[in-house]
Write a protein that binds this DNA or RNA. Structure first.
Lengths: 251, 251
DNA sequence: CGCCCACTTGATTAATATCAAATACTGTGG
DNA sequence: CCACAGTATTTGATATTAATCAAGTGGGCG
């Protein structure tokens, strides 16, 4: 829950009461094994999932088995906040690594957002950021080369992990296989492997399947044509809490 | 405005009063010339745009000029319903063909959704469908071949146009250039041209830059691995208006 | 130890981009 | 009505990117 609050506070500032409400939002976390589905396409979802620990993904598959990862969740991310409006999931959500999730019922979400409009606005913000990310992915898929695409993904992970204090030095715990990267970027595993070697050779990153190290954020961002604007960090503070000072941009 | 109501009624059934409220929502339409920006990246949007006529697009560009179309709007589509939460646009919206838009202020939207929860829900539905479409595009970009991707796009256009009565026979007015298709699919113009020839040769479609004809919807859908589920048509009726009969699926 | 994965490497092929030129189409002015 | 300019489409040839196929290597673990 901590991570959620930390993340939302990049958008707004909460009162203690609001923070309290957020903290008491959900039940105990459930642990999901790696590569297990959390929600499957076609399901009628009953609650919202808050990722407490680990990496989860959205994915979608074609009938012949080709599979595309559409996005990922880190600690503090909420899956499918407004999914109650739709009848059936049009995609699946799965744990990539071991994941701890807290399930929050629709009722609780509604109670809380009714009582605390600022929380509602903050939650909206998270879904808008998620959409923005998905647009950036579309740009990546359509226009960035394989190397740029992977580099860009690493930049994004770096930023998103940092928001919730998952970065130390320039290192992020990132227990992914190269096949996962392949499914995220729409590339073949072999090609991902070669691109990774190339990025390593260029001295931009280090990645061993467990830890991603960004050797030079500036260089990597330049290479990837990465512009963090699409993550909309820190930008709501001024508008929502009008009296609060605007803090410096993270990073 | 008609098209909007027609579209929303694929999700729910309105009372006359609600329909009235929707109809009186906005001012006179403004006409935007083809290839003109409607909102530009970095802008702080002041209102919501309802497309009355024509095709508009979302797009995003890299600093070196590469450009990706992220989605398109047909009559009845609303751009950026909840954009007030974010400070700045992270992408642009432009007219592809001549477009008529109605601008709706945030205030009006809020008044209406406060008074008519069913309208609020219906508007939410449209944004969820839009997100779903963007996920499907990601799947297309990552996993579908060039030909499948274009075929899939045509299927989608066919369905979305049909919702708002823009299809006659199996023909849709679609005044696009091949470069537009290229930017939508992340392909080069030359390759789009060849794929189009191929689809024509296979007897699946006809397209002359003005009118798209789907010669055999079944064959085209099979070829494109198209499953209309992601468009979430007709699926909310049962849940929102509990007394209303569930109508047959369109198509 | 030996097996199962994941990763790596090399060779080849397929998909798609790029470059360059030719053809068609659209609207305009004479 | 024609000539022309400008743009869009088409075609051909070639280059590049990335996929596929096939065969290693290497590490973790029962």
């Amino acid at each position: 829950m901590d991570a959620l609050i930390r993340k939302l506070e990049h958008f707004t500032q909460f009162t203690d009461e609001e923070r309290q409400a957020l903290a008491s939002l959900s039940d105990l976390p459930v642990v999901v094994g790696p590569r297990q589905d959390i929600i499957r396409e076609g399901d009628n979802p009953t609650g919202v999932n808050l990722i407490v620990e680990g990496y989860a993904i959205r994915y979608k598959a074609l009938p012949d088995g080709r599979r595309q990862i559409l996005g990922y969740f880190v600690s503090g991310d909420i899956c499918d906040l407004r999914v109650f409006v739709l009848k059936r999931m049009d995609h699946s959500i799965a744990a990539l690594t071991p994941v701890a999730v807290r399930v929050i019922s629709e009722k609780r979400i509604l109670e809380m957002t009714d009582r605390y409009p600022r929380i509602m606005r903050a939650l909206w913000w998270t879904t808008l950021v998620e959409e923005s990310i998905s647009r950036e992915w579309l740009l990546s898929m359509g226009q960035r080369t394989a190397a740029e695409r992977i580099a860009h993904l690493f930049c994004e992970i770096y930023y998103r992990a940092r928001i919730v204090d998952l970065v130390e030095g320039h290192r992020v715990a990132l227990p992914l296989r190269q096949t996962d990267l392949a499914e995220m970027t729409g590339l073949s595993v072999v090609h991902v492997n070669r691109v990774l070697q190339d990025l390593r050779k260029q001295g931009l990153i280090t990645f061993d399947g467990q830890v991603l190290t960004i050797l030079s954020p500036e260089k990597l961002e330049a290479f990837a044509l990465f512009d963090p604007l699409y993550l909309h960090m820190d930008e709501g503070k001024g508008t929502v809490t009008r009296t609060a000072p605007v803090t410096a941009r993270a990073g």
